[in-house]
Simulated assay, not measured.
Amino acid sequence: MNNAFFSEEHQLFRESLRDFLQKEVVPHLDKWEESGTIERFIWSKMGEMGYFGLTYPEKYGGLELDTFYTVIFLEELQRINSGGFAAAMWAHAYLAMTHLNAEGSEKIKEQYLAPSITGEKIGCLCITEPFGGSDVAGMRSTALLEGDHYVLNGSKTFITNGVYSDYLVVAAKTDPEKGNKGMSIFVVDRNTEGISATKLNKLGWRASDTGEIAFSDVKIPVSNLMGEENKGFQYIMQHFALERLIMGVNAHARAEYALEYTLDYMAERKAFGKTLDRFQALRHDVAEMSSEVEVIKTFNYNVAKSLDQGEYVVKEASMSKLMATKIADEVIYKCLQMLGGYGYMEDYPLARMFRDSRLGPIGGGTSEILKEIIAKMVIDKKEYKPAAK
């Protein structure tokens, strides 16, 4: 079935990436999970292999490949069982860098996008605020124009790569009286005076640095404005579809990996004289879970195909994230149960996966918010349109 989406070249890429991750990343994961810090050398290696530039223009060092290379990138990152490492990589490549590529000037692309593709510079996207959560329009951070620079004040929270990144893509209101129509996007150097970051202690995703960031009279050159002033909200909405699809793909991939691991365990583990995969109740649970994962995976592939063809998939991507993260949580919960006491042990992969998966229905827009967005489109016939070029 997957032959409809993946070519032989895609499969060769998957094998190469899987081999790279096993050799270069997996030996370090436990250390990074413990320390909460991903060492810089791996960013450079990822960049050297071209993994950050899969979809970006050749002009800046990218490969200009189709969306299914990104799908493979996301799926394989989930198979090494560190939601934090995976998040750090895709938040850099598909949150921060997406804005650089779409809204950044030529100068910004040369200064930030090109070294992001090589792994020389790490980026983060700063939208969520302590008092805003999923309410992007309600953000309080301001960037007010004073002469040849903007002065940024405010705070952001739950920012992946928020502590150790080299630059920040920041959303702030340049005309607060206009509400969401007065929001703009900037790129800001980490070493700019007035920026401070605090590392947050999380339930899962422990390898990634998630930060709360404060901006106090931070001076941003006018040239660091990305796109048009006061169009920031449109830009953010434009790219949310990609973020939601990313989290949907992540979810089906980790659920699939959890099932694979659990099936191997069940084939070896014996109880009452037979292996666990011979018990009808467990077999039927596996049948149901496998069906759910296969359905959401195929849906995600179809959404990815539509996105690759330039379609605006905000409804479908929202459905992807809503359903895939829900199914992944349920599947991983049941898989952990099937391992019994061993599932609760940190020496087995399900414990970490269980913790990491729980962020799925929360990050990038909670399931509750997504339900209302989908309801508006399905019931109220609301149409979300892409930002005007």
Rank of each mutant, 00 (worst) to 15 (best):
N3R: 08
N3Y: 06
A4F: 03
S7G: 11
Q11E: 12
L17F: 07
R18F: 08
D19M: 11
D19R: 14
L21S: 05
K23I: 06
R40P: 10
G47A: 02
Y56P: 01
P57D: 11
K59I: 03
E64S: 14
V71D: 01
E75C: 14
L77K: 05
W90H: 09
L95M: 09
M97G: 06
M97N: 03
M97V: 10
G104Y: 02
Q111G: 01
L113V: 08
L113D: 01
P115F: 00
E120N: 06
I127E: 00
T128W: 00
G132N: 09
G133M: 05
S134H: 11
L144I: 15
D148R: 12
H149M: 01
Y150K: 13
G154C: 04
I159G: 00
D166A: 04
I185W: 03
G194D: 05
S196C: 05
L200E: 07
T210Q: 07
E212A: 09
I213W: 02
A214C: 09
D217C: 00
V218P: 01
V222N: 13
L225W: 08
E228A: 10
F233A: 04
Y235V: 10
I236P: 04
H239F: 09
F240N: 07
F240I: 15
A241M: 13
A251C: 12
H252S: 15
A253I: 06
T262S: 11
M266L: 13
M266N: 02
A267C: 08
K274W: 07
L276T: 03
R278I: 01
F279H: 03
D285V: 14
E294H: 09
I296A: 04
N302G: 14
D308R: 09
Q309Y: 02
G310C: 11
Y312H: 07
V331C: 10
D356S: 00
L359I: 12
L359C: 05
L359R: 05
E383V: 11
K385Y: 10
